[in-house]
């Protein structure tokens, strides 16, 4: 016959230990609950409330005329612009710096400015014009500062510069005009000012993306992003021609204001770059859509970039006809070469 076990004696030490253990379990459970509530983001959202660009973010492969053949990392952070000089040197504007480098020999000189560099243009003799927000600075071919040009106005916001042998054209997004200077920095005129019978001015520039490119010949091409087209002028400012339509289709320029940047190939074709839906395309010399250099799938992080807003992908063309893209988020210049079959 079993004897019943005597009840365990209640003692103070055992009571306190049990209470501490129970408190610990309760605390742990509370912590887990709080974490699960705070750490489970709900980003799905109602489909009707979502801004849907899915159908525009895939490129039909039959339109892809270029392929990526390489990447060159930027020596400095915050890469913004890229351009190619007459000797084949690349000039990268990144943060407050302009870095010269050659694709074969590597980095060259570097200059540092007081504020963010917004545009760069090499001159025909290897000299360099660098635009910060409100003025230009001129450097010689060895990177020595030659002069600082006067600001065109107190609110100037320079976004594009283009130097020829005789002239310099500067795009000012704040006043929505292209400033025409001589090589010494004397202001010769303004292109795009309000004229008789025209109330809205020539250029519509909702955001600070306003690019300009001279040549070939006596021709100046200016992006008119708010009207979704490229426009040409005589060097004295006479309007000549324009092309481009607003459309989310591949043949048009998407969003409120595009193209953000453009450049011309040696054969006169245009390479354009759009922000919002990042896509780089090629158009004929007369503005017919030919194909895609790089579609949105080449820049997936740009579509998920709501905290920073749109980032423009600057484009340049090297001597071999390759398209250089300043990929800001990747911090590298990406090189695209035309496919032989294209």
């Amino acid at each position: 016959m079993n004897r019943s076990r005597p009840p365990a004696a209640v003692n103070r030490r055992g009571f306190l230990a049990r209470a501490a253990r129970r408190l610990g379990w309760v605390g742990l459970a509370g912590l887990v609950t709080a974490r699960s509530r705070a750490g489970a983001p709900q980003t799905g959202g109602e489909p009707a409330l979502r801004y849907n660009l899915d159908r525009f973010t895939k490129t039909d492969p039959k339109y892809l005329r270029f392929e990526e053949v390489g990447r060159v990392p930027s020596p400095r952070a915050s890469l913004r612009r890229v351009t190619v000089g007459p000797s084949g040197h690349w000039y990268l504007a990144a943060g407050n710096h302009v870095c010269q480098l050659h694709p074969r020999t590597g980095p060259g000189w570097e200059v540092t400015l007081a504020s963010t560099v917004r545009c760069v243009s090499p001159g025909p003799e290897g000299d360099l014009l660098v635009g910060v927000r409100d003025h230009l600075e001129a450097f010689d071919a060895r990177g020595q500062r030659r002069s600082t040009w006067a600001a065109p106005g107190p609110k100037a916001w320079l976004t594009g510069v283009c130097a020829t042998a005789r002239d310099v054209f500067v795009a000012d997004a704040a006043s929505r005009v292209v400033l025409h200077y001589d090589r010494g920095g004397t202001l010769l005129g303004r292109i795009g000012t309000r004229g008789a019978g025209r109330t809205g001015g020539v250029f519509v520039v909702p955001s600070p993306y306003f690019d300009v490119h001279a040549g070939p010949g006596e021709e100046l091409w200016v992006a008119n992003p708010g009207r979704h087209r490229l426009e040409s002028f005589g060097l004295e400012g006479t309007p000549k021609t324009s092309w481009g339509v607003a459309s989310f289709d591949l043949a048009g320029f998407c969003g409120c204001c595009n193209p953000a940047h453009f450049v011309r190939l040696r054969d006169g074709r245009f390479i354009t770059s759009e922000k919002g839906i990042p896509r780089i395309k090629v158009y004929s010399a007369t503005g017919e859509f030919e194909g895609v250099v790089a579609g949105p799938e080449a820049f997936p992080e740009y579509l998920d970039n709501l905290n920073r807003g749109p980032v423009g992908l600057d484009v340049a063309v090297d001597e071999a006809g390759q398209v250089l893209v300043a990929d800001t988020l990747a911090g590298a210049v990406r090189i695209f070469r035309e496919r032989p079959s294209a």
Partner: peptide, 15 residues
Amino acid sequence: GCGKCVVGCVLFGNG
């Protein structure tokens, strides 16, 4: 307060 317009504005324009 769905923010659908915010996405469109920030993605392409000035935000």
